[in-house]
Design a protein around this nucleic acid. Sequence first.
DNA 1: CCTCCCAGGAGTCACGTTTCTGCATGATCA
DNA 2: TGATCATGCAGAAACGTGACTCCTGGGAGG
Lengths: 362, 362
Amino acid sequence: MSRTDTTRRGSRQGRAGIRDVAAAAGVSITTVSDALNGKGRLPDATRRHVREVAERLGYRPSAAARTLRTGKSGLIGLTVTTYGDEPFTFTEFAYFAEMARAATSAALARGYALVILPATSRHDVWSNVALDGTVVVDPSDHDPVVTELVRQGLPVVSDGRPAGTLPVTAWVDNDHEAAVLDLLDHLAAAGARRIGLLTGTTTDTYTRLSTTAYLRWCERVGQDPVYESYPAHDPCAGAVAADRLLARPDRPDAVYGLFDPNGTDLLAAARRYGLRVPEDLLLVCCSESTVYATTEPPITTLSLKPRRIGTAVVQLLIDAIEGIDTGRPVEQVIPTELIVRTSSQRRPPRTTVSAPRSPARD
Amino acid sequence: MSRTDTTRRGSRQGRAGIRDVAAAAGVSITTVSDALNGKGRLPDATRRHVREVAERLGYRPSAAARTLRTGKSGLIGLTVTTYGDEPFTFTEFAYFAEMARAATSAALARGYALVILPATSRHDVWSNVALDGTVVVDPSDHDPVVTELVRQGLPVVSDGRPAGTLPVTAWVDNDHEAAVLDLLDHLAAAGARRIGLLTGTTTDTYTRLSTTAYLRWCERVGQDPVYESYPAHDPCAGAVAADRLLARPDRPDAVYGLFDPNGTDLLAAARRYGLRVPEDLLLVCCSESTVYATTEPPITTLSLKPRRIGTAVVQLLIDAIEGIDTGRPVEQVIPTELIVRTSSQRRPPRTTVSAPRSPARD
DNA sequence: CCTCCCAGGAGTCACGTTTCTGCATGATCA
DNA sequence: TGATCATGCAGAAACGTGACTCCTGGGAGG
């Protein structure tokens, strides 16, 4: 009777609370909670009645209270190692955008949302948000953020295999070595005698594995390595390095560029030196950008399949959050795809392997 | 004395709570809270002691409990209208990526984090996260999500001026009409006699305003409009529309493309028809992509300055969250920038107006 | 010597849920 | 007919904070 007047504050002040719904429906708080969450044992009539009243009052459960009570927030952190003060790195823009998009989709489909967080260990932001787990893109060697998160008992899944002893719950990556070896074989089969590499000075796993594979391949076929390195986060340095590579006395007749903008940079450099692509110079770069389908000539690209990676990372993370923890790290390798276009074929292609965005020429 | 044994659960089970810190420091919960938040009146000695103990125990305050108590979560929603089942639209990829990056930076600098949320009114995800406010990119006419958020009393700031009576707290946009008029004048000054438009079939504000400005300009200078429309979310349709535009009997000698991929599509179409750029065809497109600096020839682009927009949107939103609510909508117009390159100059440029791909921008 | 005041800190409630426990009420069964 | 049991629901204890109220000395002023 007189106890229902404990509903003093919530009713008029802000949004309707569970108490208001209970009072309006003439039932207890327990019944409302059970009815809305499909939990307890209630007849369908009561369930419907409560739901209707809740709808009428515009009731939305408080996410904060639910999180506090259940310990689950439905939030997943997404963090990327950065080279400056910006939250994402610039070089892998298309890759990251695609990967983040797929990750967001996959998370939403399972009822989770993604929170973009900085890779810096500024605790004030990280500890202000209740996370169920975190996706880390390209974690550095002994990432303090990852260590701290694992110490708190949160699952962490990385895009890119962790270097050193980084204790991630699971990771997803491409087989970068196989991709590079395959790609170099493709160039050699197209007639390349000396293949050059445009690579980065950073020590991340992608750059390291790819460069190592290149060197191994050179050793195997008995070619002297011809490569230029530059800091991958500086787009101007990339254009300069592309120019340097083609200005060398031992100029390569084919080049693979590890980073997204390398294709246009190499194409511009080739024009400056009067080199025709693909007649004088074969070109491949690693990119997710669709512009390479319509450049003159279209450029063969290696796709790392960021959408599949983003999806896989989130699936593994949510599995770890909800399911049983196997204890040992789970590893998943996503195949790459070589999208062959004109720039890596000595003769005009007879069978088009690429998916062209334009009506067929000739 | 014997009441301190109420610290029964928290101490061993999970992370350290505020009670554990209080017990370890030999003070009360109040003192710990005050010491860590710099609130009450405590001597520095006590404050330091408590902080040290908290540090030693690895204490991190529970974000959920704090949110529940204070009503502020430090989370900002970021949502984009979508044309498919993906969370972001595809056509404005570079724009959105840049804008989101700037928004994330600005939010982090003020202690907030961004949560990526779908534009669909799937309430289960939206109501599962406690938001302090939301950024909406390109809200549709009577966006149900915006309406619902405003009904809940949350501030909403939109990128793109709201159509109809959408009750946003504030908005940020470019002056699209002025940008298009200016750009058309630029093309006319370069010698264009008949300027064509590549536009979209969607009804969003950007497309509508830009197209209207084009039609107005045509009327003013007495030119018959020459344009093709296509669904902007379909990249293949864009290539086809570009081809159609150049195949017309009243073929334009200059084209402005409203969307990011239009530049490469138009360039490819021009090559198919044997048109030289800029001699036979002047080209401008709206894009944030840096590839247009190195295409053959480089293409003039209209930049909407997404970084400035992203920053402005977040600043306005956080101001609304923290500060006083003025009640009336705040509007902010960001100027656009025409990056003039070879494709829109009849004669080789003597003075380079374009900004090359240097990292420092804005 | 008494009073007042203030620094310093302890107790306690409330935020809005979820969930465990438990109490009625009828129906079933030996 | 009384014991057992499933059903339908109410009470109340947390979850971990923040903030308000109140208590207790000790020094200063009268």
